[in-house]
Design a protein around this nucleic acid. Structure first.
Lengths: 213, 213
DNA sequence: CGTATTGTTGAACGGCCGGTCAATTACTAT
DNA sequence: ATAGTAATTGACCGGCCGTTCAACAATACG
């Protein structure tokens, strides 16, 4: 049994220019999330995506560019789904608000996301565009959706009059903070309640806070 | 005018074992906050605290130990003040809740703190004890204080019945999330409202959410 | 004033990692 | 087949930074 090296007739590597980019990007998301920007090495990204160090550089140029590409890929694209959700909804604004918040929670807590968010926020000092990406993706657009719902609810009388711009900012930031707290507590606080339980409590508080009393 | 070097009779350096530690710690808080853990260099810390590279290593051993010491110094000590605030308060629980949240907001937004929080959170992967420090300081103890206030308010009838443990977690995490969002928006979103305006909106929402309807 | 003590220095070491580039090898068109 | 092309490799370079350590100089003490 020739077990040392496969005497395969397969080539030692293949040319797959159409798929390399995505494979490298997926590995980069994982590595940056696990190790942070500075600790992450291009060699590790190369290893996980099954290519050599030079290939990573060939596709993305520099480490910083790879980082930004990874953030955009992970955050910007899934946001379109939320916007579709809002456009299609028929029903009360109270329901819509809860649905939207649940949906964003699912996005924020999906595997790899919490770490990437924190790394992206912390790295804003060095790589300004990276911070901008995260801010826009999990901040600005999310906030615009929430504000649209709040405006509708106020107009329909389901919600009490309020400054919807400020309120949308508070809700958006609160959800992100909750996500980070849950993620960290899961590692250190063994008595911590589940993320879902906390989310339910948060939604209930929000419902009381915005509806007409 | 002998301007090149001061012909001073002062020694070229002094022995001040009692003050070196604090000076290095202050510099470390600033440097880690501005540059993040990995990008921060011991040389920069040494420069800002007016000592040489070797002295930093002599006092703190390794970079990781210096980081943990800086976090503990910056977060753990000021927490005692909040606890005193709670013990001394006389008045309604609604007022106390607002006061406590304002006080914690002031702490969280004090210069250098937001960056340090984010760096500490992001670095949890590599330096577990660092993450633990941040979690305990801005999470656990803060939450216990909030919960005590909520329990009191529920018992007195000012607040509606609720799961105070979960609610305290939501409020604590929400405040931290708000702080980070404000800090980042200040850099990118020129139309962003002031942190104080957002805090006021947050407090008003909380008041509606917890009081008896 | 001389000696011991120890806080402090700064040069040097060694490892690590991002970026480059010429060589290599899988494809492709003719 | 065969030559052309471009995707991929992997060794290498250069710089950076954490850590060490022997020498040094400012105090403390007798």
């Amino acid at each position: 049994m020739p077990s040392v090296t496969e005497p395969s007739d397969l080539p030692r590597w293949q040319r797959r220019p159409g798929e390399r980019r995505r494979e490298i990007l997926n590995a980069a998301v994982a590595v940056f999330g696990e190790m942070g920007f500075a600790s992450a090495t291009l060699a590790e990204v190369a290893l996980r995506s099954g290519v050599s160090a030079g290939t990573v550089a060939h596709y993305f140029g520099s480490k910083a560019e790879l980082f930004e590409a990874a953030l955009s890929d992970h955050f910007l694209e899934p946001m379109l789904e939320s916007e579709r959700l809002l456009a299609e909804h028929r029903g009360s604004f109270r329901e819509l608000l809860q649905t939207l918040l649940r949906h964003q929670w699912a996005r924020l807590t999906s595997p790899g996301t919490p770490d990437l968010v924190m790394v992206g926020l912390a790295k804003t000092q060095d790589v300004p565009d990276a911070g901008r990406t995260v801010c826009r993706a999990i901040g600005e657009r999310s906030r615009q959706l929430l504000r649209a719902v709040l405006d509708g609810g106020v107009k329909s009388g389901e919600f009490r009059p309020m400054n919807t711009e400020l309120t949308a900012r508070v809700l958006s930031a609160g959800l992100a903070g909750l996500m980070m707290a849950c993620h960290r507590n899961a590692a250190f606080d063994r008595a911590a309640p589940t993320g879902d339980a906390i989310l339910e409590q948060h939604l209930e508080l929000i419902d009381h806070a915005v509806r007409t009393s």
